[in-house]
């Protein structure tokens, strides 16, 4: 009896970690795609997630009275958010990164930080300072199995992230666009000589990454039912950590790193207290996560799956 109770709690923690990790993975994809091609940490990516969530919220509020059926409103809002974020991603690349492609390595890092501050405060002016309540998107049901439970929204997060990830892998490895992207990541100069329009490929990469960010923003907000102009910061940081853990520049690595980080966090928060007899508790959850990251990197300096990335010191 007791064992089964413990098992169901453990199963619940694994589920919690999977949901959290899928979100991290989805956002981490954006970091890793840009890094793979430009060797650049796009610090503003977390803010794109936030803009996606808030755009979708505004669109849904505006469409509320239009008489469209619920699912159409949700899909339309999602589409608008994706388009808005794609445009935003393109603009960020054009304004803040493209002119600095040949500049010292840290210059684009500073513009990225600048853009991040800019977007946050712009969003604060546009959407206000308050926390917005975000609708659940789907009819909310809770599914129970083995003593654990998962809501429809959480299930959707896992499925959508998995599907997008698979789609992205297919795109990169099977389409001609994907081949051009891989060529650019390998060596932009040579790719240019081979007839690849490098500028366009980089722009497309940003657009795809930002579109994924919008989806992630909407899913996160629907799951926690909150949207706020400050929500991108922590999420971006966690996703970046996940991308590095999996091996930055590697698509599958982003997803693996995300899910792993999610599991580490939820198992860490759930069991750290019991394992250390109350000496360390959930307050050390992030310490635990970072320690795992450091150990992984000390043993495998390129992250878990990041072997193929060329050195860019």
């Amino acid at each position: 009896m007791l064992v089964r109770a413990h098992l169901s709690i453990f199963l619940q923690q694994v589920l919690n970690g999977l949901v959290l990790g899928s979100v991290y993975g989805l956002v981490a994809l954006g970091y890793t795609m840009v890094y793979g091609i430009l060797g650049l940490i796009n610090f503003a990516h977390g803010e794109v997630v936030m803009v996606g969530a808030l755009c979708a919220l505004s669109a849904m509020t505006a469409l509320q009275g239009s008489g469209l059926p619920g699912f159409a409103v949700v899909l339309l809002a999602l589409l608008l958010a994706v388009l808005a974020c794609m445009a935003l991603g393109l603009a960020i690349e054009r304004i803040a990164y493209r002119p600095l492609r040949r500049a010292p390595r840290l210059a684009p890092l500073i513009t990225a930080i600048g853009i991040s501050i800019l977007l946050q405060n712009l969003a604060m002016i546009l959407w206000g300072r308050q926390y917005h309540s975000f609708p659940p998107l789907l009819p909310v049901h809770t599914l129970h199995f083995g003593g654990a439970s998962i809501s429809t929204v959480q299930l959707a997060i896992i499925l959508v992230s998995g599907a997008l990830m698979a789609g992205l892998l297919l795109l990169v490895h099977l389409s001609s666009l994907g081949r051009a992207m891989r060529a650019t990541a390998e060596n932009p100069q040579v790719a240019g000589l081979m007839g690849v329009n490098v500028d366009r490929i980089i722009a497309v990469t940003f657009a795809i990454g930002s579109g994924l960010a919008a989806v992630a923003g909407v899913l996160v907000s629907a799951n926690y039912s909150v949207a706020h102009y400050y929500m991108g910061f922590l999420l971006g940081l966690k996703a970046f950590t996940a991308a590095v853990l999996g091996g930055i520049g590697n698509l599958a690595g982003a997803m693996v790193g995300g899910v792993l980080l999610g599991l580490i966090e939820s198992i860490g928060a759930g069991y750290l207290g019991d394992l250390t007899d109350g000496f360390l508790g959930s307050n050390y959850q992030d310490v635990f996560a970072f320690l795992v990251l450091i150990i992984v990197l000390v043993l495998r300096p390129r992250g878990l799956l990041g072997e193929r990335v060329a050195e860019r010191a």
Partner: peptide, 28 residues
């Protein structure tokens, strides 16, 4: 000491984690 082998952005994230670890310890 533990980060000697790391370069570039991998070093960045480890140092970031180190900063957070110190802050979390002070906080707790």
């Amino acid at each position: 000491a533990p980060t000697l082998r790391l370069r570039g952005d991998y070093l960045a994230i480890v140092t970031l984690g180190f900063g957070e670890i110190i802050r979390i310890f002070l906080n707790n």
